[in-house]
Write a protein that binds this DNA or RNA. Structure first.
Lengths: 181, 181
DNA sequence: ATTAATTTACCTATCGATCGGTAAATTAAT
DNA sequence: ATTAATTTACCGATCGATAGGTAAATTAAT
């Protein structure tokens, strides 16, 4: 079929959204062009038009995710209480799991780091650096920042496998008081 | 070729060892029968003889991993100081990463939980339950057990993606004093 | 007429899985 | 002690499905 008419929306955004969800659910090695195309309602060739390779698509998805997450962190920065900012941070991870059983996009990409195109891995690394920097700033200390990020990534991973989303809350409820004192 | 002579070793153990390493490095969706066969020095059909399906192979690898890990935990139980037992626990994760950049087998399987044969996921769940139970026993409290397990799984994940194994030590050094007091 | 966005139709590579076959080891009967 | 029957542990070839990727044609807007 042809180029879309002016009143019809482009398929670029749907491609990014669906690719993101599939990567968060099944990982880079677990999603395919054909699967994205099937859900978007186009052909895999159309996706190749926008993103020549699978790495290009995943990099674009990761960059978009990174920006959206940074925006959420920026909103959280306005919360005055340190512990409330941390609980808000934990809530981002819980919301992710409750939204179609997704993982943190960069968490699941990190689990595939040995078989990832370098440009995709670089996006995940940038996400961790930025997120850890935000936590360091919000806590005024780098050491608990690293621990809390690791704990949230791990809690999300384990909570999904066990189908127990509340474990994320339990970990946060346990660690936040220890970290903020 | 024929069945190996009695003095020749069976290929069952090499298959399990190499499959385990490949899963720890690249995940369930990231390894193939052909790759295992190539490294073992046999054909993929031979692996199918021992393990009819990919899920059978992964389940066997996970069960073996779970037993070996439980044995390490049992050794650790002899350490008298609580904090030293926790550092020993953290060392298991650091050793895993330093051994060919592997992840915790059940950690990487958990990251693929949405696309895993049920019997494989069940092994990963059993691993988390057992490991958390050991931590609860060694700490006398379930809440820090959950947090510490999540932190170690997450730290291993992030540390490998960043190629910075020492982050595991840093997280342990930060959390152990908070948890044991 | 040109350009942008998409489809159709295809390619090669690899996937997990299955086939028939075979030599060595084992077991059971004589 | 031989031997016949069976099992174990493999191999080479191949299956249908699916992977990522590409070239050419088509259509819509400018």
């Amino acid at each position: 079929m042809p180029r879309p008419r002016k009143d019809e929306p482009s398929k670029l955004e749907p491609i990014l959204e669906i690719a993101q969800r599939l990567i968060q659910q099944r990982g880079y090695n677990g999603f395919s062009f054909r699967e994205v195309a099937s859900e978007v309602g186009c052909t895999s060739a159309s996706i190749h038009y926008h993103f020549p390779t699978k790495g290009d698509l995943a990099r674009a998805v990761a960059a978009r995710y990174r920006e959206a997450f940074a925006s959420r962190l920026n909103d959280l920065s306005a919360v005055p209480e340190t512990s409330e900012r941390l609980y808000g941070f934990a809530r981002l991870f819980l919301e992710t799991l409750e939204n179609d059983r997704r993982l943190c996009l960069c968490g699941i990409l990190a689990s595939e780091s040995e078989s990832l195109p370098p440009e995709v891995l670089a996006e995940a690394e940038a996400f961790f650096a930025e997120t850890e920097a935000w936590l360091s700033k919000t806590l005024g200390d780098a050491r608990p920042a690293k621990s809390f990020l690791a704990a949230m990534e791990g809690a999300l991973l384990v909570a999904r496998a066990r189908n127990r989303p509340r474990e994320i809350d339990e970990v946060a409820a346990h660690l936040v008081p220890l970290i903020t004192t």
